[in-house]
Amino acid sequence: MTVPANPSAADLDALRLEVAGLVVEALNLDLAPAAIPADDPLFGEGLGLDSIDILEVALVVSKRFGFQLRADNEDNVNIFRSLRSLTEYIAAHRTK
């Protein structure tokens, strides 16, 4: 799926579901991608991911969308805050 330069809400919803699917697949989570709330935290109380999980997610996102998420990026806390924030970052930076 290709998201246009100025994605609509529907485009972002479709991308968010695709990203959720990548997260579920990469981490072998026992839940449906659609069950991941868009605004719940990915770390801690929300989805409960840890730093190793985030590295795995970053790897599959990088491969799928053609750009690199770096461990030393100062903005990682904001990028991985929620599924919505990760999706919006991907929509803005993807090359494929």
Rank of each mutant, 00 (worst) to 15 (best):
I90C: 01
A26W: 09
R16V: 05
V60P: 09
V57I: 13
R64Q: 14
I79Q: 00
G48F: 02
L69F: 15
K63I: 04
D53W: 06
A20R: 02
R84M: 04
I79T: 11
M1G: 15
A91P: 02
G66C: 03
L22A: 15
P33C: 10
R64F: 05
V24I: 04
G46E: 06
A5G: 01
V19T: 14
K96N: 02
L42W: 04
R64W: 06
P33H: 09
E25A: 10
L86W: 11
F67S: 00
E74I: 05
L83C: 08
L47M: 09
I52W: 03
P33Q: 12
A71F: 05
D40F: 10
G48I: 03
L49Y: 11
D39R: 13
V77R: 14
T2A: 04
T95P: 06
L22S: 11
L15S: 10
A9T: 12
R70I: 07
A92Y: 07
N6I: 09
I36Y: 04
V19Y: 13
E25D: 13
N73Q: 15
A5V: 14
V77G: 06
L15C: 07
A38W: 02
V60S: 08
V77A: 07
A26F: 14
L83E: 05
I90W: 07
A71T: 12
L29G: 02
D11Q: 12
D72A: 03
A10V: 06
V19M: 06
A26C: 04
V3D: 02
F67T: 01
V77M: 06
P33W: 08
R84C: 10
A91S: 13
M1D: 15
E74M: 01
A20L: 07
V3H: 06
F67A: 01
N6D: 12
R94C: 00
S85L: 01
P41D: 15
L69Q: 10
L83H: 06
R70N: 10
S51K: 09
L69C: 10
R64L: 05
D11H: 13
A71H: 15
A20M: 01
A20T: 00
P37N: 02
D13E: 13
L22F: 10
I54K: 03
V3K: 13
L47E: 12
R81P: 04
D30H: 14
P4D: 07
L27G: 02
E74D: 08
V19C: 01
T95H: 08
E25H: 04
R70H: 13
P4Q: 11
A34I: 05
L59K: 00
I36Q: 06
N28H: 15
R84P: 09
R64G: 15
E88L: 15
V61Q: 07
D75Y: 08
L69Y: 12
L27Y: 09
S82I: 06
A10K: 02
G44I: 01
F65R: 12
D30F: 02
R64V: 03
G44W: 00
D11Y: 09
I90D: 03
L31R: 14
N6K: 11
G66Q: 12
E74S: 10
I52C: 00
I54L: 14
F67R: 00
L59G: 14
L55C: 12
L22G: 14
L83S: 10
L42I: 08
L59N: 14
D39S: 08
N28V: 06
G21N: 01
S8C: 14
D13C: 05
R81T: 14
L42D: 11
E56T: 04
L69R: 12
G46P: 08
V77Y: 02
N76Y: 00
A32E: 15
A9F: 01
A35C: 05
L15Y: 02
